[in-house]
Design a protein around this nucleic acid. Structure first.
Lengths: 211, 211
DNA sequence: ACCTGAACACCGTTCAAGT
DNA sequence: ACCTGAACACCGTTCAAGT
């Protein structure tokens, strides 16, 4: 049922001891453990126990603990539907930045991992995450930015996205923060609003400086 | 020499077993260990070994491992010289945000801790970190922002500051990132420039939206 | 081929007992 | 008063041996 990967492998090469698990099963299990107990409780040993396999077996499918988290992020990013892009290049930058934030938002702990292993995840060619980077850079060019200005704008947006995720992860753990709590709207609405206003401010403010 | 705290304590109440260490010694040792081996290598056990004391003794001075890091951050923030504030309120917001970033910059790992224990560090009344928050909020008001707009502007700046620190910490560990590497200037100059331009863009962009 | 128990070298935290 | 060894309940990672 869930073990199709295993079956396929066993069929295609019928010699040797059959695998007891697959990359897909490991990622599924990890996802479930994370939203049951939080990402900081995910350990290789716990994951193996959950799957009912030996601890060392995990290391046949992932290089180490960080690699597991990065695979999870790339997996989520590739599942995320790419947004419709507006014709206006500036609007395109904004929409893509918001989509990038939303794609990462399903795993807020991603910020911590991405920052530690930074371009290890975003910068590898062929990864889906790279799509967001490309669209933002080329749209900025279309809006009249030089190569350098586009790079700087992306970097600023990246700081903002990562920072928002990081703060959100923290607040989730120990109650809402004061600045947000004092606003009249619901928590989720308020943070989304502040975030998108910030992205707009960053884009417009940067382009005003350039001209 | 470094053990004045201990001596003072021993003199003022001469009964009972004398302390073998003090909060100041613990913080000093932690600081040294961090910039020798990196903050992720700092452990309670290593710290105790470095001080030549029992592991459990550490827990007389700090509640737990996170508390130690937070004390370190607050200590650094309180040491940081407060910047001269310009008359123009908008400029005051910018200068204070840059100073806040610089104060935290001596401990880039602070971003991770602050995000996890968020307002636990920034929000406690009486802490020096609160000064930065107050100045930014009141300066934004002086510039014509409503209470809510000031709060939102601070939050945006906080996202940006935290994000920049987080990305910088990550890049330090595994080589410069591509966007920055492609710029003509030195690494440090380039990142400082991008950061301060971003703060300006955020402030100006936000105020343009308001009017 | 693929899996695993056991081992290695660590963690944070607590607490009864020692000085 | 203050300190601490030893214990508890964990970690990540490796590798020789097993199936």
């Amino acid at each position: 049922l869930i073990q199709d990967d295993r079956t396929v492998k066993t069929n295609s090469s019928r010699r040797g001891r059959p695998p007891v698990t697959s990359r897909a099963e490991i990622l599924d299990s990890a996802r479930r453990l994370i939203d049951e107990d939080g990402w900081e409780k995910l350990t290789v040993r716990r994951l193996a126990r959950d799957l009912g396999i030996g601890t060392a077996t995990i290391y046949h499918h992932v290089r180490d603990c960080d690699d597991l988290l990065i695979q999870l992020i790339n997996d989520a990013a590739s599942r995320y539907p790419k947004p419709e892009l507006p014709a206006d290049p500036l609007e395109r930058v904004i929409v893509t930045a918001l989509a990038m934030h939303e794609a990462l938002g399903v795993m807020p702990w991603a910020a911590k991992v991405l920052a530690v292993d930074g371009e290890g995840c975003l910068g590898r060619p062929g990864e889906d995450a790279l799509w967001f980077v490309d669209v933002i850079l080329s749209s900025a060019s279309d809006a009249g930015c030089t190569h350098q200005q586009s790079g700087e704008l992306f970097l600023k947006l990246w700081y903002f996205i990562v920072g928002e995720l990081l703060v959100q992860t923290g607040n989730a753990r120990h109650g809402a923060n004061d600045a947000i709590a004092s606003l009249g709207q619901s928590h989720a609405d308020a943070t989304t609003h502040v975030f998108s206003q910030g992205v707009r401010a960053l884009v417009n403010g940067t382009l005003d400086q350039a001209s």
